[in-house]
Design a protein around this nucleic acid. Structure first.
Lengths: 101, 101
DNA sequence: CGGTATCCGAACCGATACTG
DNA sequence: CAGTATCGGTTCGGATACCG
């Protein structure tokens, strides 16, 4: 699934997540992503635009219809993955691995 | 979302997809993924096991409960992404880019 | 402000060869 | 058969500097 290849790249999901709240300018996105370097931001944006997930408007960048549709599909998965990540941490904390304590 | 980082790696989704149909041995997975090299397969499997998505049984590797839950969430997204990929191709075919026709 | 060009180190893919 | 070790080649991330 090419989609996961794309979304797996650094900041791609973060950008989509941010833009789900409305249009943002280049700088705004940059700041909202803990000052990601412009190089990467530029790359991700171009990719996402090329894939029809993002578009430019007067207000800056924003999700396309397709992008919004994707976000709707992503949201439940995001929630699930949070639960999942939590459980992982708990498991790791419970398993002593090799440390004798 | 760490999940996407994991699933974005090569073959990770393919492996899950295959195992969704039932347990498989190392070789079987390998063959079902157009003979992915054992190095990569081994890496992916270890990661997925470490994350509680896969487990070993007598029949080989199989999805855990968690893995199956993930798969259920993934399926609709997979279907969506197919549509999306198709539209992308159509768009690219329709836009002449720079070619004068 | 918005975006591009360059460059380097790190991470990743994957072939091959090898052990149990 | 199942899995590991090693080692290139390539891609990716990201800092910096720079242009419109």
């Amino acid at each position: 699934m090419a989609l996961f290849d794309l979304l797996g790249r650094s900041w791609a999901l973060g950008i989509i997540w941010q833009l789900a709240n409305g249009a943002m300018t280049f700088r705004q996105v940059q700041e909202s992503c803990e000052n990601i370097s412009p190089t990467i931001l530029n790359r991700r944006i171009k990719e996402l635009v090329a894939c029809g997930l993002l578009e430019r408007s007067d207000q800056g960048y924003q999700l396309t219809k397709t992008g919004e549709a994707l976000f709707r599909h992503l949201k439940p998965l995001g929630a699930w993955s949070l639960q999942w990540a939590d459980k992982l941490l708990v498991l790791e904390a419970a398993e002593p691995l090799n440390n004798e304590t």
